[in-house]
Design a protein around this nucleic acid. Sequence first.
DNA 1: GTCTATATTACGATAGAC
DNA 2: GTCTATCGTAATATAGAC
Lengths: 196, 196
Amino acid sequence: MTTAKRDTYTPETLLSVAVQVFNDRGYDGTSMEHLSKAAGISKSSIYHHVAGKEELLRRAVSRALDGLFGILDEEHARGGHAAERLEYVVRRMVEVLIGDLPYVTLLLRVRGNTDTERWALERRRDFDHQVAELLRAAAADGDVRRDVEGRLATRLVFGMINSIVEWYRPDGRGMSEREVADAVVQLVFGGLRKDA
Amino acid sequence: MTTAKRDTYTPETLLSVAVQVFNDRGYDGTSMEHLSKAAGISKSSIYHHVAGKEELLRRAVSRALDGLFGILDEEHARGGHAAERLEYVVRRMVEVLIGDLPYVTLLLRVRGNTDTERWALERRRDFDHQVAELLRAAAADGDVRRDVEGRLATRLVFGMINSIVEWYRPDGRGMSEREVADAVVQLVFGGLRKDA
DNA sequence: GTCTATATTACGATAGAC
DNA sequence: GTCTATCGTAATATAGAC
């Protein structure tokens, strides 16, 4: 056994506090003073755990990116028909979004004012392109409509999925991850219109 | 006739510069120094035209909100079957988003750190609720699927529409407003799946 | 209307005691 | 690991000349 859980901060526990504040106020709208108040320790104590504000951002977006890229390595995302792989990836994106909600939220709001932010934006683009490639393959198979151009469709679908971070809150009796994922898959593939 | 167009700033022309910078760097990430560099005048000259940074924000989001609420007053949004009114509103939202792109972009990124931001968030919620009501009516008419809960569907559809500000750029030979609106209507109502 | 100069406050980060 | 005190910089905004 390790020693009993301590009352003090680690970079990891401090991160979870910081990410909440970043998401509430925006990264640029958050000062070290805000963070210290939220964490209940002084500003200088924060610097004992992390090098500064930007390191907290880097750790947070790294975690989000690892979650997303992890999807593409999963078995169901790598084998089978493109359309099925696409549906699997869409569903898993919703699950990762919700599972790592605060981290992915922060990632999706990054602007590009610092090196860390520009790096995050670049990796996000990589991920987007890989999913766009899946959609292109599904269209080539004739499994998805071709009257909407591929890049455009990808962007709109990503927009729908990513927007979940703007309202989903894991409030006890709220919606489950599964319910949201089902709804997204229904709407993305079937649309609002009633089935014949 | 009025006097010839002058070379100097008005609150309106200054606003168009400021909004661009706000969207590029984020509102909180933009200093008066950034604005003065972008406008080509000194910081203090900016204060001759507007009371401060927050006034620029207020003017910008007001314009965006006026555009959106204007939709709900249009004839086609007020008469006819709910499903048709809903489709009309969805299409017009895309058009207003693109027509007032920088202003709506800024509105959609507001966090709530100042009174102005909290006021903007409140009005946005009002608008969202009115569109959600339309969707509810269309569902009651049996014109849209009922296996996806109304609030959830509204949020996802808004997410898709609003995400347009993250990538649409009116670059000369890019997509037209009409093409984007068509694609959104196709996906929102019909989904990705190929029609039978 | 625009400028330079400056007041004042807030910020990120460090020094050094305990 | 946490604190108080503080440094140096950058922020919003104002004063007053031209």
